[in-house]
């Protein structure tokens, strides 16, 4: 299934790094996201689209994961030539990920 069916997301920028906050649509989906949406898997998902590494942080109270995608914005801010220079729609790009269905 698509991650879109289990989570919502918002993304933004810090220099050349895009952050994607991924939030479980229901609290019971959160452990499933923690298990399956790993930094390594997100790095594979964005292969070719980012030049740096992916870091992941957990916010269990908020049923959310925060991903930092380094080298995602062609230099970022005003330097970037991308339409999405501020990483605003990396959120929905992550929600395209195929993921195992929770039991």
């Amino acid at each position: 299934m698509l991650l879109l069916e289990l989570a919502h997301a918002r993304s933004g920028d810090k220099g050349d790094t895009a952050n994607v906050g991924l939030i479980a649509l229901k609290p019971e989906y959160y452990p499933h996201l923690v298990k399956h949406v790993t930094a390594a898997r997100v790095a594979r998902h964005f292969r070719g689209l980012i030049t740096g590494k992916v870091e992941r942080y957990e916010l269990p109270n908020l049923h959310a994961l925060n991903f930092l995608l380094h080298g995602a914005l062609d230099g970022g801010g005003t330097v970037s030539l991308k339409t999405d220079a501020q990483g605003k729609v990396f959120s929905t790009a992550l929600l395209r990920m195929e993921i195992e269905a929770p039991r």
Binding site: A9, R10, G12, K14, N19, Y57, N66
Partner: peptide
Amino acid sequence: VAGVTEQLVYEMGDPT
């Protein structure tokens, strides 16, 4: 809660 959470994680680095 869902909408506010989206804003909490916006432009977030290390949340701790």
